[in-house]
């Protein structure tokens, strides 16, 4: 079984936020209005952590893209009362929107705050309605959603590979954020494939994972010399 993982090279990342925009468009993530955004209800599957270090005038700014980490040992699926979030056979932590009862226990249990909630019925401006991604289902109000590692792309890649009767090649399955990154800082691939770029990067001395001491075993690696 493949083990899909992501590596984000923070030394290359410029913090432009293109991954966030690509993710929103790819996954039909609702765009909340300004009032809602001011109430901290922005819906982002790919978030950008902005961390300020030091004091004025010597401020150092860190911009770190943060998708769902698709932990190998996810704390969120343990607490779900209805099997609405689970680890599928690809190792991806998936959501079942039609089953979620909206108790938000998984959001409270996630140490990375990776999940978002539909506080209202999701809405889009008219211009957006014409360019929805038909591969991704729309969510309804009152359910939890999060980054899926663009699992719909995996479906297509798998179908193509099966049609051609071959294995999925490295780099064939890649989520929208990795594809869009202008600095080519996001890598995606199979950790089980020892030839893959991601496997090599995950073993780099620069690689680290967030909150490794919790034992959640995230599948998103960050690469940085400075950390």
């Amino acid at each position: 079984m493949p083990k899909w993982a992501m590596a984000i090279d923070l030394d290359k990342c410029t913090g432009c936020g293109d991954c966030m925009a690509a993710c929103k468009l790819e996954n039909n993530v609702a765009i909340v209005d300004a009032e809602q955004a001011a109430d901290d209800r922005v819906m982002l599957w790919m978030d950008m952590m902005t961390i300020y270090e030091g004091e004025y005038p010597n401020i150092k700014l860190k911009r770190i893209p943060k998708p769902c980490f698709h932990c190998d040992n996810p704390p969120c699926i343990k607490v779900c009362p209805v099997h609405a979030t689970y680890k599928n056979e690809e190792g991806l932590v998936a959501q079942i929107y039609n089953r979620c009862i909206g108790c938000r226990y998984c959001m409270a249990a996630c140490p990375y705050t990776a999940k978002v909630f539909n506080w209202y019925e999701p809405e889009w401006a008219d211009e957006f309605k014409t360019c929805m991604n038909p591969d991704v289902s729309l969510r309804m109000k009152g359910v939890v959603e999060k980054c899926s590692f663009c699992a719909h792309r995996l479906q297509k890649v798998k179908e193509n590979a099966r049609a051609d009767d071959r294995e999925i090649s490295d780099g064939e399955y890649s989520p929208a954020c990795a594809d869009s990154c202008p600095a080519e800082a996001i890598f995606f691939g199979d950790l089980e494939n020892k030839e893959s770029k991601v496997f090599k990067l995950s073993n780099s001395p620069r690689a680290f994972r967030e909150l490794e001491d919790l034992g959640t075993i995230p599948k998103v690696f960050y690469l940085s010399e400075k950390e």
């Binding site: 343990k78 009362p81 209805v82 089953r99 979620c100 009862i101 939890v144």
Partner: peptide, 22 residues
């Protein structure tokens, strides 16, 4: 507190007794 109170019966049909909520 539920976002979808209409689906509360899911805890009978698809509940997880492993969840502290149950």
């Amino acid at each position: 507190d539920l976002g979808r109170p209409d689906r509360v019966l899911n805890i009978f049909t698809a509940g997880r007794l492993q969840s502290p909520l149950l």
